[in-house]
Amino acid sequence: MSEKKLDLGSWVNDVVQHLLDNYSGGFDSIGGVVSGFSEGIESVLMLPPAWLLIAIFVGLGLWRIGARFAAFTAVSFILIVLTGFWEQTVVTLGLTFSATLISLALGIPLGIWAATSERVTTIIRPILDFMQTMPAFVYLIPAAMLFGLGRVPGIIATVIFAMPPAVRLTNLGIRQVNKEIIEAGQSFGCNSRQLLFKVQLPNAMPSIMAGVNQTIMMALSMVIIASMVGAGGLGNDVLASIQRLDIGLGFESGMAVVLLAIILDRITESFGTKQTEKRNSLISWVSAKLQRE
């Protein structure tokens, strides 16, 4: 490394140290909430026997996509069970869901806010770029320092990495709603709350669902990496295979990740695109709920 003229890194160290010295109580309570939430989700997923959870996914595949995809789902999960990765897969699924739900809970409102204000968009955009392009491992260091090792820093780092698409696509979706549809809402006397819930959100739904899909996929890839700070799940096996140069273990655990990714991707994608064909879809259901309020 050549000689440093400007030591940005040491400033960042100082900031993290400062946070650690002065606000550790705050981080502890955040950590407690995240930990409780994700443990709750994991225990719900652990509750049913393997066959029931598999049946639920197969059922979703059959309803949303079709018989062939349902068969693929069944075969994939059976393969995972047979290779002995079922438990880790469920842990990974739990981590992914926790991180996704937190990302959406933060990201969608932020996206809505950004859609209403040019200034918010201008401020948020570089931050989102930073969050998305910074090598994912880098978050793990401060996360581990602030929250200790384990699932919490893993989920926090995953949320940072996976939230941007939810913000971006919510913002984009709302901004792209046809101008005359917005005018229709206004001309019939919508107030701003009605305009958001009856016009903007339902019409932005395909884009928001695409954001949800991307958030899930990014969360899945990040929770694997998060095993480096001890988040657990399939990532542990991937990490172990690297450390031991065990190609066989690497293949088996990697394949479980890939299969899980495909299944999650196709199912969540179907909620975004098949809106018009399937009336009883989640979107109609969600918009119906929103509209009823």
Partner: peptide
């Protein structure tokens, strides 16, 4: 007062009935 638009500006996720009822719902 109400308005009719060039691009129709109907809500795609609503049925014809729910679209027609939009103003009353609001």
């Amino acid at each position: 007062m109400s308005m009719v638009f060039q691009s129709f500006a109907l809500m795609p996720s609503r049925t014809v009935l729910d679209n027609a009822a939009f103003g009353l719902e609001v």
